[in-house]
Computed example of a mutant assay.
Amino acid sequence: MIQWKKWFTGPGSCCLCDAPHRASSWSAVWERVCPSCRCRLHRIDSPCCPRCGRAGIGSLCEDCLTGPGGELERNVAVLQYTAYPRELIHLYKYRGREHLARPLAEMMAERVFSAGIRAEAVTCVPLHPQRLKERGFNQSERLAQEAARHLGLPFIPTLKKVRSTPPQSKSSRWERMAMLEEAFQSSDWKRIAGRVWLVIDDVYTTGATMVECARTLKRAGAQRIYSATLAR
């Protein structure tokens, strides 16, 4: 009896940093995060921009008021993009910690469900083939596959990036939108048309990537497009 209890309740480890943490593998994702990690993660709750998910704003933010983006109904994000989420994403994308996709995507699925978003299919922001070859995997695709599994939805990779774009970290929102124009194509109009889609990516910065993905899906006949990111 004692052995069975240990199997359910510990010893265990944090699902993010692997530090010892007494939490069952059956526990909800936030219960599997150790106190040290939890205090460094700032979850986005109300108030936030109802369109892009920016924290601390109870109405549309300035970017959403002044910029394009009508094709994207709404973005929701789990975490503010502070130092520790940035570190986790870096470990996941570049340091071989690909197993982080599971807990991070579970957080995203929980956020999507609690926000009342009811999509019919999940897709992801694609990488250009050259970038995919360099990195070895698409971090957004792994997150999308896991999130779709938790949401009980099909994952369908409907988007392709057909034009390589330079790094955008130092570009303004308008520069990013110009660079990304016509950079994506939809690969399967029959499966896209008439459906409500959820697009997954790791970080929402200016929204240019999500808006262009939504625009591409809309041209292919999608009914509505929502997006979810780990960080904002």
Rank of each mutant, 00 (worst) to 15 (best):
M1S: 11
I2P: 05
P11E: 02
G12E: 02
G12K: 04
C14N: 08
C17D: 03
D18M: 12
A19C: 09
A19N: 13
A23T: 06
S24T: 06
V29S: 08
W30H: 10
R32P: 10
V33D: 01
S36G: 15
C37G: 06
R38L: 14
H42N: 09
D45R: 09
S46W: 11
C48S: 11
R51E: 11
G53R: 03
R54I: 10
S59F: 13
E62D: 10
T66P: 15
R74K: 15
V78R: 02
Q80A: 14
A83N: 14
R86S: 09
Y92H: 04
R95V: 01
R95M: 08
R97M: 14
R97S: 09
E98H: 14
H99Y: 09
L100E: 00
L104I: 08
M107N: 03
A109D: 02
R111L: 05
R111F: 08
F113Q: 14
A119T: 02
T123I: 02
T123D: 03
C124Q: 05
C124K: 07
V125P: 01
P126G: 00
L127R: 05
P129N: 08
R135E: 05
R135Y: 12
G136M: 10
G136W: 12
F137Q: 02
N138M: 04
S140Q: 05
R142F: 12
Q145S: 13
E146W: 13
H150A: 07
L151Y: 01
L151Q: 00
G152W: 06
F155Q: 00
T158I: 11
T158S: 11
K160I: 08
K160Y: 13
K160F: 10
K161W: 05
V162G: 11
V162P: 05
S169K: 10
S169C: 10
S169H: 11
S171K: 09
R173A: 13
W174G: 15
W174V: 15
R176Q: 06
M179N: 12
A183I: 03
F184Q: 00
S187H: 12
D188F: 07
D188A: 13
D188R: 15
K190G: 11
R191V: 13
I192F: 10
I192M: 05
A193I: 12
W197Q: 00
I200W: 05
G207N: 03
T209L: 02
M210T: 00
V211I: 14
A214N: 04
T216D: 01
T216Y: 05
R219E: 12
A220S: 07
A222D: 00
R224Y: 15
Y226E: 02
A231V: 07
